[in-house]
């Protein structure tokens, strides 16, 4: 049981090759990573380094060319509600209300064991968790980008996934909304104890949220460069952390990696 929790997600010797028109593209090589149960891990790197590919591999949306991915002692063979994904562009269905969007996932996971009213309660609870109880009957185009992203998170959390996978969930939001949602995510994760793997390119976001920051080298054939353990006490407070010398140190070491060791020559 100990090893199972310590290696809740176990990525072992993963290689990823894409067949493109120009031939094979070697996206990821030699990826080895374990994630503890309840851990918050962020993947950071320059664009094109394959961090989203790695996330999609964990999600089961892609299959590795070589190597294995294990989640909760079982090999990842395809997408599953136990590994819920929050997409960058929220991916809510525009013809369903926020409530219905969440209910769709809830129904899939719990319809075998629970009745309708219990599942509706779950949906309501998920909306309440992200502070959107009032917006349940609205359609996605009637609410703001930040609210859409929160519905996306609620949809993922409502399924009570073993792992929450987030692909730059706040990338498309303005700075203030992003900060607000990061704070909310911290609270939610503290409450639910979820295991989270999140892709980001925002250094502050990575340091603020993570237990570990996995920094990836530049592609092609990207791999894990360094891993930073973030030993900041939780609950974390954005304003207090800004003064914390340890926070600044972590931030510097990530920046150092990204902009000195993995500097992109053609960076725009």
């Amino acid at each position: 049981m100990e090893t199972r929790d310590a290696k809740f997600i176990d990525i072992h010797q993963v290689e990823m090759l894409f067949n493109t028109r120009k031939g094979q593209f070697h996206a990821l090589r030699d990826i080895n990573l374990t994630v503890r149960k309840g851990e918050f891990v962020t993947l950071i790197g320059h664009s094109g380094c394959g961090k989203s590919t790695l996330l999609n591999l964990i999600a089961g949306l892609l299959m590795p060319s070589e190597g294995v991915l294990i989640c909760a002692s079982r090999e990842i063979g395809g997408p599953s509600p136990e590994r819920a994904v929050v997409f960058q562009n929220h991916s809510l269905l525009p013809w369903l209300t926020c409530f219905e969007n969440i209910y769709l996932g809830v129904e899939r996971v719990f319809s075998a064991t629970e009745n309708k009213s219990a599942m509706k309660e779950r949906t309501k609870a998920a909306l309440a968790l992200v502070g959107l109880s009032a917006a349940g009957q609205k359609r996605p185009h009637e609410i703001s980008g930040g609210m859409k992203q929160r519905v996306g998170i609620a949809r993922a959390l409502a399924m009570e996934p073993k792992v929450l996978l987030m692909d730059e969930p706040f990338g498309a939001l303005d700075a203030l909304t992003r900060a607000h949602l990061q704070d909310e995510l911290l609270k939610i994760v503290a409450k639910t104890g979820s295991t989270v793997v999140m892709v980001t390119h925002d250094v502050d976001e990575a340091v603020l949220l993570s237990d570990r920051i996995v920094m990836m080298t530049n592609g092609p054939a990207a791999t894990i460069g360094e891993i930073v353990q973030v030993r900041l006490a939780r609950p974390r407070e954005r304003l207090a952390l800004a003064q914390d010398p340890l926070y600044a140190e972590y931030r510097t070491s990530v920046l150092e990696f990204l902009y000195r060791k993995q500097a992109v020559a053609h960076a725009a």
Binding site: P79, P81, V85, F87, N89, S91, L93, L104, M159
Partner: peptide, 21 residues
Amino acid sequence: QDYMNVARVLNLSEWKIITKI
């Protein structure tokens, strides 16, 4: 493709995929 990814992650049945997506 986003919607189809949602369907895959939620592991929706073929019937649900047809009616809801």
